[in-house]
Computed example of a mutant assay.
Amino acid sequence: MKKTCLAGLLLAMSSMAAAGEVEHGFYIGGAIGQSSLELEDADSTVDFNGDDTAYKLIAGYRIIDWVAVEASYSNFGKPNDEIFGIETEGDFSALAIEAVGLLPLGSFDLFAKGGIAAWEGTLRAEDIDVSVSEDNVDIKFGFGAQYRIGGLALRAEYEAVLLGFDDDGDDEADGDDWVDMVSLGLTYTF
């Protein structure tokens, strides 16, 4: 009887460990979510604040249980806002590379990441045919959680790029500018 109970306990523990095993190696994926673009003009009270649907494509490599590196392309959609009665639209995207720290908890991972993003963006007022474009390399960070089933992982994530955006054309970054995204996505490790 004791041997049967011990064997059953060992079998249950090994199946629980297998369910929480971490897949190492290359992974790819994508996500869709909601972006928010905030551009603050430090020289006036005129600020841009808009949101839109966004998506990203992901490629990464999980080196060990706790560390991965990840590259991504994010398209933050075309958020819009009205400034002085003029409809204004943003168009921002970014290529990023980040280090990812992971905390495996059985089949779940909590993660935080940080790196750099090469972004480009345009702010345009179509009605008066005015636009300002900018590109730069700035800090990107994020955090989230994922649930793993074998090589497939469902992830929820928040990420932001701090923008050095010159929205009035005076060759100076004007304030606390950033674009962020809350997303739900899938990755597959192979």
Rank of each mutant, 00 (worst) to 15 (best):
D170S: 05
F108S: 04
S131P: 01
L105W: 08
L162K: 12
Y147S: 00
L105C: 10
A173S: 13
A117H: 05
A156C: 02
E157Y: 06
D138N: 12
A94D: 11
N136L: 06
E134I: 02
W178Y: 14
D91G: 03
S107N: 13
E89G: 05
G90Y: 09
G142A: 04
G106R: 06
A173F: 07
D167Q: 13
T122W: 02
P104H: 04
E172W: 02
E87V: 15
A160D: 03
P104K: 07
G106K: 09
D174K: 15
V130M: 07
V179G: 01
G115D: 06
A160G: 06
L103V: 15
L154A: 09
G90E: 02
D167W: 02
E159Q: 15
G150W: 06
G169R: 02
G114S: 10
V161H: 00
F165V: 00
F143H: 07
W178D: 03
D166M: 01
L110P: 09
S131F: 05
G150E: 14
V182R: 10
D170M: 11
Y147F: 13
S183A: 12
I139Q: 05
G150I: 09
D168P: 03
A125G: 03
L95Q: 11
E159K: 11
D135F: 01
D127N: 12
V161A: 00
E120Q: 13
I149V: 14
G169V: 04
E172S: 14
L105F: 10
D138H: 03
F141L: 04
A173H: 06
A99F: 08
D129P: 05
K113F: 14
E98F: 04
F108Q: 07
G142I: 06
R148P: 01
S93W: 05
D168Y: 02
F143P: 00
D180C: 05
T88M: 10
G169W: 00
Q146P: 11
D109K: 15
L110D: 11
I149Q: 08
L154Y: 10
L103D: 10
L110T: 04
D91P: 12
F111L: 09
A94M: 08
V161W: 02
E172M: 12
I139V: 13
A118K: 08
G106Q: 11
L103K: 13
E98V: 15
E98T: 14
V179D: 04
A99M: 11
E126R: 13
V137Y: 01
D109Y: 15
Q146D: 13
D129R: 11
W178K: 07
